Amino acid sequence: MALAPGPAWAEWVAATPMAQAMRDGVWLYPVVEIVHITGFAVLVGAVALFDLRLLGWARALPLRPLAAHLLPWAVASLLLIVPAGLLMFATQPRDFLSNDTFLLKMALLLAAGVNAALFHLGPWRRAADWEVDVATPPGARLHALLSLLLWVGIIACGRLLAYT
């Protein structure tokens, strides 16, 4: 059974020369996927280290300097992840848009972004009060735990895309 045509913009994306090159090249898609996964490893590593600190590990590490160290790594990793993800999406936009696993991954990414924004608008504003050797407030710990769970879900969905 043939799939119904996707949105016009998805069809346009699939017809671009770069999408065609990604589909036709033997090495281009795997290289882009490696870049995407490498970027994800750096991003999730930085996020996990920060979240684990919020959850109480390594309380002797000053929180704000740790964040200042990890943030550039996280931002730089996005410069790998986003373009690589868009390139992979361009190869089969209609298939991705009809894949529940992909849609869940996108929803989890959105939730992770909202969680991070709410953390920075809320508990992070008082981080000076719990900088070193002080228990992180429950609200901040909840954001950290949710962050870790969301990123594990995102990773799982990304991996499951090969099978769904």
Rank of each mutant, 00 (worst) to 15 (best):
A2H: 12
E11M: 11
A15N: 06
A15G: 07
A15Q: 04
A19V: 05
Q20A: 15
R23A: 12
R23F: 02
G25I: 02
G25F: 01
W27R: 02
W27V: 03
P30L: 00
V35Y: 03
T38E: 05
G39P: 03
G39T: 04
F40A: 11
A41I: 14
V42D: 00
V42N: 00
G45T: 04
A46V: 08
V47Q: 06
A48G: 12
F50H: 12
D51N: 08
D51T: 05
R53G: 01
G56Y: 05
G56F: 05
W57Q: 12
L61H: 09
L61A: 13
R64A: 03
R64F: 00
L66C: 02
L66R: 01
A67Q: 13
L79T: 08
A84N: 04
G85S: 04
L86T: 02
L87D: 00
A90G: 11
T91D: 10
Q92A: 15
Q92R: 15
R94Y: 08
F96W: 10
L97C: 11
S98C: 09
S98P: 06
S98G: 12
N99T: 03
M106V: 15
L108M: 08
A111N: 04
A112G: 12
A116E: 10
L118Q: 13
F119Q: 11
L121K: 06
G122T: 08
P123L: 05
A127E: 07
A127Q: 09
A128E: 14
D129C: 07
V132R: 13
D133T: 01
V134A: 07
A135K: 02
A135L: 03
G139D: 05
R141Q: 05
R141H: 01
H143A: 04
A144H: 01
A144L: 01
A144F: 01
A144I: 01
L146Q: 14
L146K: 09
L148E: 14
L149S: 10
L150K: 07
L150V: 10
V152E: 06
V152D: 07
C157S: 15
R159I: 14
L160M: 12
L161M: 14
